[in-house]
Amino acid sequence: MDPRSEVLLRQAQLFAGPLLLAGLPSDDLLGHLPNARSWSWHAGDHGLLESRFAGRNHFGVTPAPVAAPAAVLFLPKSRDLTEYLLSALAAQLAGGDLFLVGEKRAGIERAAKQMAAFGKPRKLDSARHCQLWQVRVDNVPPAPDLEALAQYYSLQLADGPLTVVSLPGVFSHGRLDVGSQLLLQHLDGLQPGHMLDFGCGAGVLGSALKRRYPDSRISMLDVDAFAVASSRLTLAHNNLEAEVICGDGIDAAPLGLSTILSNPPFHQGVHTHYQASENLLRQAARHLDANGQLRLVANSFLKYPPLIEQHLGACTILDEAKGFRIYDARKK
């Protein structure tokens, strides 16, 4: 059981009635709270919850109507995303209770101050290195317009400017990260055909691919619903077309790919998490066609070449800068 869920269950009497759990982990909490429903934006967590508690789960960037007098938000990593989620929930909880639970090291006390816009927050519990806060929603905010919260920035690429639309909570929100910047310099010599941007985030790499290889079919995949929404906005803003998929890792990708391009994730929340990236390296060959190609950027301290060579083929380092490396390999 996730420690944040354990903290809720220490106050189980507060959560016996109808309740919405937002951003909850994929543990057994719904089994302990039979009147609760979930709202997730992580495709992996949603899939696991739906497999165990079918019909009690909602997925997407906006909440389903809150048919409950209370909601709990599990603190996400991003402060901007926290503000959006708190407002989206509070907008449907007039006179109801909004709870916030999270780890101390994730900044729960700072985040609790964001609840003051709706009423007077109070701390209910502190245990398992986590805290639980509550506010009665007396000041009901308007439902937030997610797209209005987007940040825009422009990239000057060889084939013209590209505008990136970044929503709260998306990796490297509002700016180009160092890894993607390096990988953008190495888009030549890729195998055209059906190309995948794995871990697409705000859609930087996938959009650049479509511009560089306009006759290729481009798919973009991310586990996070806010990233998928951002990628769709970036494509639309630049008059580009691509398939955008929300799914849990490389298993959700199409087969028969000519190229997989990736700045793969290795963080989930405040924790370092390599599983999605390592699964990509282990399973890439299954999704690539004959002579298919994998090109990715990764922190240079990560020992990816042996894994690539074991499961795909000979690995070449194309470039190295600012603590990152570009790896390239073709299917055996």
Rank of each mutant, 00 (worst) to 15 (best):
M1W: 13
R4V: 09
S5F: 08
S5E: 06
L14G: 02
P18H: 12
P18W: 00
L19A: 07
P25L: 11
L30D: 01
G31R: 07
L33T: 04
S38T: 14
L49V: 08
R52I: 00
H58W: 14
V61D: 14
A64S: 13
A68P: 10
A71H: 06
L73N: 04
L75A: 04
K77M: 01
K77N: 07
T82D: 02
Y84N: 03
Y84V: 07
L85T: 05
L85V: 00
L89W: 06
L89A: 06
L93E: 11
G96P: 07
G96H: 12
K104H: 12
R105E: 15
R105T: 10
A111M: 03
A111S: 14
K113I: 00
Q114V: 00
M115P: 12
K120A: 11
V137W: 13
D138R: 14
N139M: 03
V140F: 09
P142C: 09
A143E: 14
D145R: 14
D145E: 15
L146H: 08
T163P: 04
Q181W: 04
G189D: 09
Q191E: 15
G193K: 02
H194C: 02
G206A: 05
L209T: 13
P214G: 08
D222V: 04
V223A: 15
A225R: 00
A229N: 03
S230H: 11
R232Y: 00
R232M: 06
L233C: 11
L233N: 09
T234F: 14
L235M: 09
N238V: 08
D248S: 15
D251V: 14
G256M: 09
P265M: 03
H267A: 03
Q268H: 10
G269Y: 02
T272L: 14
H273P: 02
A284Y: 03
H287D: 12
A290K: 11
A290F: 00
A290I: 06
L294T: 00
L296Q: 02
L307F: 06
H311R: 08
G313Q: 11
K322E: 13
G323K: 07
